[in-house]
Design a protein around this nucleic acid. Structure first.
Lengths: 353, 353
DNA sequence: AATTAGCACTCAGGGATGACGAGTGCTAAA
DNA sequence: TTTAGCACTCGTCATCCCTGAGTGCTAATT
């Protein structure tokens, strides 16, 4: 059977309608829509065809139709109309993106919350490193108070971490100089695995008065490096799922959310084709997610740092809207972190070029 | 009417039982408990008395009794038996507390998650500063790559923050030295409000080659200071609430959780009397939380940094257990951050004293 | 005086029943 | 090819009744 233009039009109308109402849609409702110039009986016939072709399903003999996974797939691939962010929306999004403090993990949690609020669905953000193993690029040790030192570790992934070390040692400025020289000489360009106990004791021997600081520093350094390899998952707004009619049943919501824990999310297949990828129902990994879809998009913020943001929702979700908003966020992230930062130019004459 | 020992014993049994089952408890069930040497009829009489005295309630004429708020209050104040953490529990808790990276906000989210997992309830963690306004104690600027600088800001609250600044400027080592000298001279001991545009332009004038860095740095500094004043709220495990029978109704769970948003939590009255405070039902702020209790405890980790951790749950929650676990976490936090850190002493001969 | 057994009473919960209505498929007419 | 008409299906909702757990009261017992 052929998929005529009219069939497509009807299918789209059905999916659109179902997305709004979450209830099986009947022939009469479709016939009543503006732009539909045929009677409900005709629609019925077409719907019967679409059902036969596998794009629609019938929950029971005498209910309306709901889109099948294949129907959704067709919808997101061909039928869906792009959702245009309204001016209001872009404004609010822009305001929201002006994050207070640009620490990366805080930003990720913030972005997660925002995506979740904007889509009214649970959202996740995954960060991951690509490229070479993280290594140390540079150490710096500053003395703070008596017995307090600040260790600053820079890695090749352009991350800078610091730690305040409080130890009842009295060390001279020159000892710290020596210590950082030794550290830089011995540990630069090493990855976490390459830092062996032998190296540690070697450093310790040459560290002079600051020898007791060495184990702490090395320990911290290794942790920083290890943490760089990890990908972090931020999952927020789980409760939003309860707002969706298909998850009014607590059991179901719990099932979905316990299946989609941070572990699983971290291992979701990264989107490859196109900016936004949509996983519809059974295409997903676990069979518990049968009625669940995942929409996700990649972001890339340079320095070997990239990740995904996405949302989880019922198969019947407003793909167009969600897609538009997700992409907007991903772009925004790229804009925020990817480029070199320019001063806010609060003063007149702010030229840095 | 007098509250005899036997009445107390019965009340305790009722609350204990209700905590387990979440269902109204009848006289027969109590009479059957070990240690109860009277018949169900006697229990019934006592229960009638307790109801009259306001400690019990009857959902309807012919159901068992449930504790009233007053009953809970009496229970947590006098009747509750201390829950002893089992060795298994303390061990697991200890393991869990060995957090990977000791950045403070990560630790807080981690602690939130752990508390939530251990109590099976939504948990929150609130941090707050006490004492003087945050001011800058020390600046340090390190040059990283060509055109990359690391700004390290230390505040009087013993916090150290850093930021990687990428600007296409080529600045010599000595310029940075000058810059940090100027910054330290001009901004030390100032709070966020005291950093005026005048000061900014003064610094800028004296900063020499690095003048273009100044606005960024000052901007960041102000943000760091402002952030220090904020109290952060970490709320996790909201979904746990759905596991509790009284919140199987989605509406109710949503209501409670939307009432108890981060805003509200941040403004919960800080516990004053004793280590753990319990807010039972109507004692709480909003009437939506009628059937909800909050158990919270303070922690104090020195350096003017303190906060609360707590859980939210049905009025019928296992107060004894929750209390014990919360205190344990609070203690652990104090232990982790309060004391000076000693090296892990992986090498033999690790004496730092 | 306190405790207990017995009994009538109450009421929420759960299954059965039936009316209702939205939606369908089919047929015949346009 | 489209449409009107009609019989049929089946989920939803309201109603009803039954069951059982639990109570309060009274009278007997210790």
């Amino acid at each position: 059977m052929e998929l005529t233009e009219r069939k497509k039009k009807i299918l789209r109308a059905i999916v659109d309608c179902y997305i709004q109402t979450a209830e099986p849609v009947g022939s009469k409702a479709i016939a009543a829509m503006p732009g539909m110039d045929v009677s409900s009986a005709t629609i019925r016939n077409e719907m019967a065809d679409l059902t036969e072709m596998g794009y629609l399903e019938q929950p029971h003999t005498s209910a309306g139709r709901i889109p099948s996974p294949a129907g959704y797939r067709l919808y997101v691939n061909e039928l869906m109309e792009g959702y245009r962010l309204s001016i209001d929306e872009t404004q609010s999004l822009n305001e929201a993106m002006e994050l207070k403090l640009q620490e990366f993990d805080k930003v990720m949690t913030q972005v997660g919350k925002m995506v979740s609020n904007w889509t009214n669905l649970p959202a996740y953000a995954v960060t991951s490193r690509v490229g070479q193993l993280p290594t140390v690029k540079h150490f710096e040790i500053l003395s703070a108070d008596t017995g307090s030192f600040i260790l600053v570790v820079m890695t090749n992934t352009e991350t800078v971490k610091n730690k305040l070390i409080k130890l009842p040692l009295n060390i001279q400025e020159q000892d710290l100089k020596l210590l950082s020289a030794v550290l830089n000489a011995s540990l630069t360009d090493l990855s976490a695995e390459q830092i062996t106990p032998e190296i540690l004791s070697k450093i310790r021997k040459s560290a002079g008065a600051a020898a007791d600081l060495v184990p702490i520093i090395v320990d911290y350094t290794v942790r920083v490096l290890q943490e760089q390899q990890h990908s972090d998952v931020y999952l927020t707004g789980q409760m939003k799922l309860l707002g969706q009619p298909e998850y009014r049943d607590v059991e179901k919501a719990q099932e979905v959310l316990s299946t989609l824990d941070e572990e699983v999310i971290a291992n979701l297949p990264a989107p490859t084709d196109g900016p936004v990828q949509i996983l519809v129902g059974p295409e997903n990994i676990a069979k518990e997610l049968k009625d669940t879809s995942v929409v996700m998009t990649r972001f890339d913020i340079g320095d070997g740092m990239q990740g995904m943001i996405g949302v989880v929702g019922p198969t019947r979700m407003d793909y167009a809207q969600v897609t538009a908003r997700l992409s907007y966020f991903a772009e925004g992230l790229g804009r925020m972190f990817g480029k070199n930062e320019l001063p806010p130019a609060k003063e007149p004459d702010g030229g840095t070029e």
